[in-house]
Design a protein around this nucleic acid. Structure first.
Lengths: 180, 180
DNA sequence: CAAGATTATTCACTTAGTTGAATATACAAT
DNA sequence: ATTGTATATTCAACTAAGTGAATAATCTTG
């Protein structure tokens, strides 16, 4: 269950409330973990309670003015150890698992225009996302050679996003030519 | 539930038994749907029974010599209609959801060598997969311009795989330089 | 002051996916 | 003869993920 470790990773860089975490895992909020892992707020809170019960996390209640109180979660020594152990384990290649590919595979069953419209809509979204990645790169990682260790690893995941979206767009252009 | 439609798509190109389908959805069997969608044989059989009950599929029992009998499933008119309807629906961008990226994000917590070794192992697997894709391309799609409609769509999904793996390898090489 | 937005969290229900075990036929190898 | 492998399928238990609804405090706006 990678959500467990995705949460631990996110909380390692900074303790946060469930609410703040949930925002970062929300796919519609730009520029956060949500780009390569997402989860609903219900999922996050459920997992936080589970991890607190296992003592991988500890929570501190924080009284707030002007808004409801909250609980700030941070990773315990045990949680950190578990995270490191998980990182060291080997993992399978992640499958693509993309609805669009399944649809394309059976694309001969529907009107041509249905598929073309779909690809154009996705193309726009991927282009937007690539633009966001580039913006993050320029804003937070202008000089990749001089990054701290922590930031360097975050930068590498950002680069993955950039390569992924670039590859997606190149593919889209190539198949559009086949379709027209 | 995309497995439903992935199964329908696979059975649209040719009626098959659960056993044959399961092989095609097996991630460790090379050169099939399993590259962009996978499922265990238990999942497949469960889903086939569900779809037969809904009359999206029909089954025909086939007596065999030299091996156990089997049931061949094919898509009904209703199943085909449901598949086409699903294809026409809009879909979200698929998230990356890759354990390796979560691990990389928190990579500063473990020895450098742990991450480098992981990337090298993955690099080899991705390179192998790319080689398989290229082989399929040369063997089944030597002349992309002259493909039947059905094969053209399959070819487009293959191209996605090629772009994906090419992008992955380019990314890997780029971050390896950052790591060393 | 009522209505709506934002912050903050929980509970219950349902669907989807994973894992272990079991059953049965037939062939091939030891 | 027995063990192992390939074909072919089912059942049960469990974990993980997704969805809908609810509660509650506080701030903003008409």
């Amino acid at each position: 269950m990678s959500l467990t470790y995705a949460i631990l990773s996110a909380l390692m860089s900074a303790p946060r409330s469930g609410y703040d975490l949930a925002k970062r895992f929300n796919p519609s909020v730009e520029g956060s973990v949500g780009f390569f892992w997402n989860a609903s707020f219900q999922q996050i809170y459920r997992e936080l309670n589970r991890l607190e019960a296992h003592q991988w996390l500890q929570a501190e209640s924080v009284q707030q003015e002007n808004r409801p109180d909250k609980r700030i979660y941070s990773v315990t020594a045990m949680g950190k150890q578990q995270l490191c152990q998980w990182i060291a384990e080997s993992e399978e290649m992640a499958p693509l698992k993309d609805d669009l590919l399944v649809k394309l595979y059976a694309g001969y069953l529907v009107p041509h225009q249905t598929i073309v419209a779909k690809l154009e809509a996705h193309r726009q979204q991927h282009q937007q996302r690539l633009a966001i990645y580039h913006e993050i790169k320029h804003q937070y990682f202008p000089n990749p050679q001089t990054l701290s260790k922590t930031l360097k690893f975050q930068y590498m995941t950002l680069l993955r996003g950039i390569h992924y979206e670039t590859g997606w767009l190149a593919w889209c252009d190539e198949i559009m030519q086949l379709l027209t």
